[in-house]
C-alpha cells in the first residue's frame, strides 16, 4: 500500500490541489471563451489546472522520497489569536441601544482574549494591560491619526470636559 514518506510535502500537496479544485469548481460557470477572445473563465481555468498538476507532482514525490514529519501544531495560540480577531470585528460593529460598544472596550477585550494564547494567564495583569493599551490606541488612532473609529467613552469624556469648561465660564 501507499505510505506517505514526506508528510509535510504530502500535506502541502493536498492543500494546493484543494485550492486548484476549488478554483475549477467555483469557476465552472464562468465563460471560457477562446484564446483569441478570452472569457472570464479562461485564465482561472488555466491557473487551476497548473495548480492541480503541481500539487499532484508534489504529492507523488511525497510518496517516494523521504521527508521530515509534520511538527505537532499547538492549538492554543492559534485558537485564541483567531478568536480575539473575530471577536474584535464582531464587537466593533455591535451596538447596545444604538450606542456602539466602541474601540475602548473592544481593544481591552482583544488584549485579554489574546493573553489566553499563552499558558500562565493572569486576568488582573491582562486587564490592567488591556486598559492601558486601550487608552494608548485611542490616542494613537483616534487623536493622532484621526481614524473614524467609534469611541463612545472617549467622546463622552471629551463632551463632559467641554461642558464643565463652558460651565465654569
Amino acid at each position: 500500500m501507499f505510505r506517505v514518506k514526506a508528510p509535510r510535502d504530502f500535506g502541502s500537496a493536498m492543500v494546493i490541489m484543494l485550492i486548484g479544485i476549488a478554483g475549477l469548481y467555483f469557476g465552472k460557470d464562468l465563460t471560457y471563451g477562446t484564446a483569441g477572445r478570452m472569457g472570464p473563465g479562461y485564465f482561472p481555468f488555466l491557473l487551476s489546472m497548473i495548480i492541480i498538476s503541481l500539487g499532484a507532482g508534489i504529492g507523488i514525490k511525497s510518496l517516494i522520497v523521504e521527508g521530515p514529519p509534520i511538527a505537532a501544531p499547538k492549538l492554543r495560540p492559534m485558537f485564541f489569536v483567531l478568536i480575539s480577531i473575530i471577536v474584535f470585528g464582531y464587537l466593533m460593529n455591535f451596538e447596545i441601544y444604538e450606542v456602539p460598544v466602541g474601540l475602548e472596550i473592544t481593544a481591552a477585550v482583544l488584549v485579554i482574549i489574546a493573553a489566553l494564547a499563552r499558558p500562565g494567564f493572569n486576568l488582573k495583569e491582562s486587564a490592567i494591560f488591556g486598559i492601558g493599551l486601550s487608552v494608548g490606541t485611542v490616542f494613537v488612532f483616534k487623536v493622532g491619526l484621526g481614524q473614524p473609529l467609534p469611541t463612545p467613552l472617549w467622546d463622552a469624556s471629551v463632551q463632559f470636559v467641554k461642558s464643565q469648561m463652558t460651565g465654569v465660564r
Partner: peptide
C-alpha cells in the same frame, strides 16, 4: 504580542470599518 496584535487588527479594521475584513484576516 497583544500590543502588536491589537495594532494589526485596528489597522485592518480602520480601512473601512467592516467586520467582514476581520473574518478575512482570521
Amino acid at each position: 504580542y497583544p500590543a502588536i496584535l491589537l495594532f494589526c487588527v485596528i489597522g485592518v479594521y480602520s480601512t473601512n470599518n467592516n467586520s467582514v475584513l476581520m473574518l478575512f484576516t482570521a
